[in-house]
Design a protein around this nucleic acid. Structure first.
Ligand code: ZN
Ligand code: ZN
Ligand code: ZN
Ligand code: ZN
Lengths: 130, 130
DNA sequence: TCCTTATTGATAATGATTGTCAACATCATC
DNA sequence: GATGATGTTGACAATCATTATCAATAAGGA
């Protein structure tokens, strides 16, 4: 049976305070800075569990790192992500959902899934340097 | 100046024979099996160059590997990929392009880019086992 | 042909992630 | 509240894809 530990709680609430996708290592540093003596492996495990149970979304950065973000559970959605600061906004798109199903079916593919992410520079990061 | 070597040609034509996304290591094995004594680092460099110049597309597998696929140069497109055998089909979707630009603009994001991939089981892989 | 220098490839180094395993903590049960 | 079975932790080692090194090689312009 799954047990409740302060480590899992700590990872979950640390993730909740982030408005950007973060790596396991970043989160581990943040937790250490908060004075908790949590282990790195534990952070990796907790994040994997959260992703598994749908409480967090994950994506692979172009550098190959796995990044995590707390997300609205039980609701299919995608993300609009700032390339500079990581700020992330959840987006929905029924049109894209339907398109994905349609294009799969048209090509004889079954059990379609999809990866849809939009990257850009957020309003703040779009401002020219002073 | 960029020089032409048989190694780069070999990687390019090996990639052209694949109808699926493949890793650098897979391609290196295939090239070694063909009797060429090409080095692994060279395959990595050639693939990076091909991706850089738009002659190949790349994506990160869920396991964190970088996968490559020869693609139609100079034409923006996405991919429909079989989760089982890797068979890959290029797809276009103006509607998705416009949606991505729109959702970015609506949230104050500039310089939008996007990642859109559809995964499923191809017709062959959808057939029940005999 | 000669020479400059981009390229190669064997190998070491890197870095994120996972495996190991003894010590520990949770929680159903007493 | 105490007990015990067992899920969990964390320091560390191991793994594995990718990148950096660097001496040897080979393109290709002169
Ligand atoms: Zn930003
Ligand atoms: Zn979707
Ligand atoms: Zn298939
Ligand atoms: Zn597109």
């Amino acid at each position: 049976m799954k047990r409740n530990t302060w480590q899992r709680e700590a990872v979950k609430s640390a993730l909740d305070t982030q408005d950007a996708f973060v790596s396991a290592q970043q989160l581990h540093s943040a937790l250490r800075d908060d004075g908790t003596g949590i282990g790195l492996a534990t952070v990796y495990r907790a994040l994997a569990d959260l992703a598994e149970s749908g409480q967090a979304d994950s994506l692979q950065s172009t550098e190959g790192e796995a990044l995590y973000r707390a997300c609205t559970p039980g609701q299919h959605h995608h993300h609009l992500i700032c390339r500079n600061c990581g700020l992330t906004v959840e987006i929905e798109a029924d049109a894209v959902e339907q398109w994905a199903r349609k294009v799969a079916a048209e090509n004889g593919f079954t059990q379609p899934e999809h990866v849809v992410d939009v990257f850009g520079l957020c309003a703040d990061c779009s401002k020219p340097a002073p």
